[in-house]
């Protein structure tokens, strides 16, 4: 059962990723990316990352993609919507990009196939990745990185307000 769910979620992720990069309309790409994040959330749940699965759906599929949606609606709406110019690529741009990333993906998959130690994972302890354990680690051992993430977000907020101010 877990196998079936994992296969479905993985196929959903990959298919929606292809839809994102091939969509003509950015709005369709946003919707596909939301579906991709939901699939990733399912995979996180299967890997015993409970808190991260919730974060993936709430923060990514919720907050970040709503931000994308606002910007798509702001830039792409109306009759004078900016368009992506077609058929003016650099020479060999698409074949070269596909070849380079194809070689990369093939190398990674080959390396993983050779390294058979990863095939058999250790049996998970029952409470690994539970929200209790995650919270305890976050607020004791990793308290300083947690506080620094607040600083990163503050810097981002100040930067956005600075860039968006009326001139």
């Amino acid at each position: 059962m877990a196998n079936l769910i994992a296969i479905l979620a993985g196929v959903l992720c990959l298919f929606m990723g292809v839809v994102v990069i091939s969509a003509k309309n950015p709005m369709h790409a946003v919707i596909a990316l939301v579906a991709n994040f939901v699939g990733l959330g399912v995979l996180f749940l299967l890997l015993h990352a409970e808190f991260l699965a919730v974060i993936e759906v709430i923060v990514y599929a919720g907050a970040v993609m709503v931000l994308f949606l606002f910007v798509v609606a702001l830039l792409m709406a109306g009759t004078r919507a900016p368009q992506e110019s077609r058929g003016k690529n650099l020479p060999g741009q698409v074949p070269l990009a596909l070849a380079v990333t194809g070689v990369f993906a093939a190398l990674v998959v080959f390396a993983l196939a050779v390294r058979t130690v990863l095939v058999a994972p250790p049996p998970s302890t029952t409470d690994f990745g539970s929200i209790t354990n995650f919270g305890r680690a976050l607020f004791t051992t990793y308290l300083l990185p947690f506080e620094l993430t607040a600083l990163v977000l503050l810097a981002a907020v100040i930067g956005v307000v600075f860039l968006a101010r009326e001139r």
Partner: peptide, 19 residues
């Protein structure tokens, strides 16, 4: 579930994003 399968999905997703 074997860890390798998740890593393969991860590598393919990264390749799609790079393309």
């Amino acid at each position: 579930l074997p860890t390798v399968d998740f890593l393969v999905v991860s590598a393919l997703l990264f390749a799609i994003g790079a393309v």
